[in-house]
Design a protein around this nucleic acid. Structure first.
Length: 347
DNA sequence: AAATCGGGGAT
DNA sequence: ATCCCAGATTT
């Protein structure tokens, strides 16, 4: 029996997908609310971050308890905002979220905007996230295309156009829009499309036999789709910082540049003729970098620039240490240095 | 159109 | 080690 294109039978496709979802939907906290702020928080946390990460470590619940609404988030301390985010990565998202809250307070009088254009204009909110809020909070027929939807649509249409190309993106959004407009509920439809990609139409070993829309799928070799462009290879990076402990606490430095803005780290090691002793060494991979982090002893006082006079460098007391937002690699290094094995170089 | 954001988990 | 993940912004 010949396959039918989902694009030529959008109503029947949406019907089959919706029926499947009605019987198989998972229970997530953000599916129990229609509060656009609560939806937006979940979407921001889930950008490039898996559901078990957000859910398992309690990030979402903790955030909503601490910042239950836009007003609370808008007036919160940035350090507390970043500390609540610590461990999720891509800390820019946390800062965007607070900027969003302040924008809603100042530009929208504290009322969360209701149109796609206004939501899309909020800091950190792109086309996907704006569509997610419109469909999940307001049940409006706005399309969404995330990694899951891209995979599902590429396979359904048997389309090898690279999904990360401009042409591929244009096709995906057009198809997503066509389908969501043919569905009885955008909220159900968009949730179902993503969940299908997550549970059935998986990256590897998809379970096509259990797929509710298999008769609409034109894929001949599902696992060969979607096609993506090659990514850049990893770059080796060496980072040298130092550990200086006084009676009052530990010397730390706050990031002010384009990366990890607002977060604290061990201070960068100044240029030295001779490298001070090594206290700790670790390796981690971040985006496209493979970093070797060396923690040295503090350089001798007279050769060290007046770091304490720099606005970004401060002695942090041990009591305040847990409350400062800090990227995970530094947090781990600091814990190792302050723990029982302090001053022992790892083998 | 491509790079960057400088995470984290699964495989 | 590599890929993927409920992406967005900047240049």
């Amino acid at each position: 029996m010949p396959k039918q294109s989902p694009l030529q039978h959008p109503e029947a496709f949406a019907q089959a997908l919706g029926a499947w979802f009605a019987a198989n939907a998972k229970d997530y906290p953000w599916r129990r609310t229609t509060d656009p702020y609560a939806i937006l928080v979940s979407e921001m946390m889930l950008q490039q971050t898996q559901i078990p990460t957000v859910l398992g470590k309690g990030y979402y619940t903790r955030w909503m308890e601490r910042f239950p609404d836009v007003r609370t988030l808008a007036k919160a301390e940035e350090a507390e905002v970043l500390r609540t985010w610590e461990g999720l990565g891509y800390y820019r998202r946390a800062r965007f979220l607070q900027q969003m809250a302040r924008t809603v307070m100042e530009r929208h009088g504290g009322v969360f905007p209701k149109t796609l254009e206004e939501i899309h204009a909020l800091p950190g909110v792109g086309r996907y996230t704006a569509g997610a809020v419109m469909s999940f909070a307001h049940d409006q027929a706005a399309p969404i295309v995330d990694g899951n939807v891209a995979r599902v649509l590429a396979r359904l249409c048997n389309d090898a156009t690279p999904v990360d190309s401009t042409e591929g993106q244009t096709k995906l959004w057009e198809r997503a829009e066509l389908l969501v407009k043919a569905s009885p509920s955008a909220r159900t439809h968009n949730s179902a499309l993503m969940e299908l990609g997550q549970t059935v139409c998986r990256v590897s070993s998809p379970t096509c036999g259990q797929c509710p829309v298999q008769k609409y799928c034109l894929a001949e070799e599902p696992t060969s789709l979607p096609v993506k462009g090659a990514r850049a290879s990893a770059t080796e990076v060496t980072e040298r910082v130092f550990f200086h402990r006084t009676e009052e606490g530990v010397l730390l430095q706050q990031e002010t540049g384009a990366r990890r803005t607002g977060l604290w780290k061990l201070p960068a090691l100044p240029e030295c003729e001779k490298l001070p002793g090594v206290l700790h060494k670790s390796r981690y991979t971040i985006t496209r970098y493979r970093v070797t982090l060396w923690v040295h002893e503090a350089p001798v006082e007279k050769k060290r620039p007046a770091l304490e006079e720099s606005a970004s460098v401060r002695v942090i007391s041990h009591d305040d240490l847990p409350d400062l937002p800090m990227p995970s690699p530094y947090r781990r290094a600091l814990n190792a240095l302050l723990g029982d094995n302090a001053f022992q170089l790892e083998a």
